[in-house]
Design a binder for these strands. Sequence first.
DNA 1: AGCCAGGCCCTCC
DNA 2: GGAGGGCCTGGC
Length: 307
Amino acid sequence: MLIRIESAFNLESTLDSGQAFRWQNRGDYFEGVIDKSIILIKKSSDGIEFESFPQSEKEFKTKLRYYLSLHDDLELISQSIAVDRNIQSYIDQYYGMRILKQDPWECLISFICSSNSNVSRVKKNIEDMSAAFGERIEAFGSVRHTFPSPNQLENANIPALRRLRLGYRAEYIYEAAKMVSQHVINPWSLVEESYEEALHTLTKIPGVGDKVANCIMLFSMGKDDAFPVDVWIDRIIKELYPEELDDYIQSKYLNQSATKKRAKDIPKSQSINRRIIKDWAREYFGDYAGWANHYMFHERRKRLLRS
DNA sequence: AGCCAGGCCCTCC
DNA sequence: GGAGGGCCTGGC
């Protein structure tokens, strides 16, 4: 079925930029799993062409438009975050890349897995968990599995998760599944909450700190101003904006009791922590800071893969 | 062999 | 409140 897209859409960068972990690049199309279906997507002249099974394409069209954030005004967002030449260049290079709206539960577990890890390993972890505890789907010549529900993961015990090579994350995943299945936390309801509320709730889950929480909020909850700071973003921001960061810290300190703080106590750009970087970037890039984050991250990742 | 990878948690100060 | 070390595993 065709989904007509009026504005720009970069399918490859959107699905293969490390924000989602279930998409496989099959050359001229992508295969993934959303909800209870296998999805095939490819570019077409006036939008994208997709197939779904077992859920019908008619049923899936609305869901897919939402998932791909096709209703978001990319022109507006790009203008909003293009505050300097750096970010403008990244937008130009990967124009049409969008932040997805994945399932918050799957996204939560995915980014718990991501700590001290890498994209290809997280992909394997998610496929392994799905194969072990999700439901089998067969379509288009492929066998895939749904991402397990909170109940299905809670019923998987920790040793079984350990056997999937999840390492110390197994305990976190099990605890998270228990919290969700027992209604201590409802990740889907956080879409309606404010950034601060959602952050507060998410970081109560073991294995979820500030970075992971910001990824979940950005990639599944439509919190466009979430700004995950990992080692790469940390390096990029310090590299591109050293003066701005120093100025920001100066002003923060001056706004406090100026006499109490001595110059030597003011952190230098090398030792600036991730909290300060996040606070600065959310002010600097504004309402769509998370999109700026992902363009910077993606550009760096692509550049490193080339070299 | 030893360090690092898209962090987080716990234990000290 | 923040610095420092440990943690599963895989890859170089």
